[in-house]
Amino acid sequence: MSILVIAEHDNSSLKQATLNVVAAAKAIGGDIDVLVAGESCGAVAEAAAKAEGVNKVLVADNAAYGHFLGENLGELVAEVGKGYSHILAAASTTGKDFMPRVAALLDVAQVSDIMRVESDDTFVRPIYAGNAIATVKSSDSIKVITVRPTAFDPVAAEGGSATVEQLDVVKDAGLSTFVSEELAKSDRPDLGSAGIVVSGGRGMQNGDNFKMLEQVADLMGAAVGASRAAVDAGFVPNDMQVGQTGKIVAPQLYIAVGISGAIQHLAGMSDSKVIVAINKDEEAPIFQVADYGLVADLFEAVPQLEEELKKVL
């Protein structure tokens, strides 16, 4: 068996999710190659070559891949991937965008968002917002799979010594062009891989009040997230949403502040190791999954939390 992992990156650095996906590939077993498709992405290829367990790094460096457009990546990955038994990518917004195109071009099904590998053709994945867990078996000759990064412990970033090979395959479908992007700039850790996440919900009342959470997060080196309600209300941008259709997180510690705990939100965070809920409504469903619940007005509790943390950290 041979597995092709599509690297997750931003043209300058390799994202940790790639190491989680390589871990999923190791669980399947076989030679693991990594494809780095981007523009001026040499540093990413070098980083991928050092990852544990990688056999070979293939680099497709061309302007056509610079913005990870699904039409172009789909054609490239279908072409490069047709000699492999498995093609894996992170279930990120990039992976979710181009991987179904790869599957369709190869005329195979895709298995989305796997959280466990049972064998080389059988995988475990959540359905119904994680309220049911399905074990599915693929009968296709090439398995196209997106991987939930938080469900696999990453392989080591250092220690490998894969060969790096340049590809000259240029696939420009000519269907779409990049116009612009507004990316959130933050010095905090990435929400998807942070060890601690502090999230706010509708109870925060407005965007300014999220500053309270940011101060607490910065004390602990945490990322800041939000519930759908807080994003829909315009308190914070969409990239902070945790839930069924937002980001899936599984940190060591998740602190939910003013979040009631709709099933769609729980789907995005219930694999966290320790969950803390702060909510003034004693009946809020979030308390049914919380390891530590504090029934309190968040506008009193969060400043107190900041003071208490300063004492112990």
Partner: peptide, 28 residues
């Protein structure tokens, strides 16, 4: 004709509700 067959569907491992703490100091 489907390409994927579902072998089984299970309920997720349920989390047990934990404890309520009295105040922030106890939480920390």
């Amino acid at each position: 004709a489907p390409r994927l067959s579902t072998l089984k569907v299970e309920a997720p491992a349920s989390r047990q509700a934990g404890v309520k703490v009295a105040d922030v100091a106890e939480l920390v």
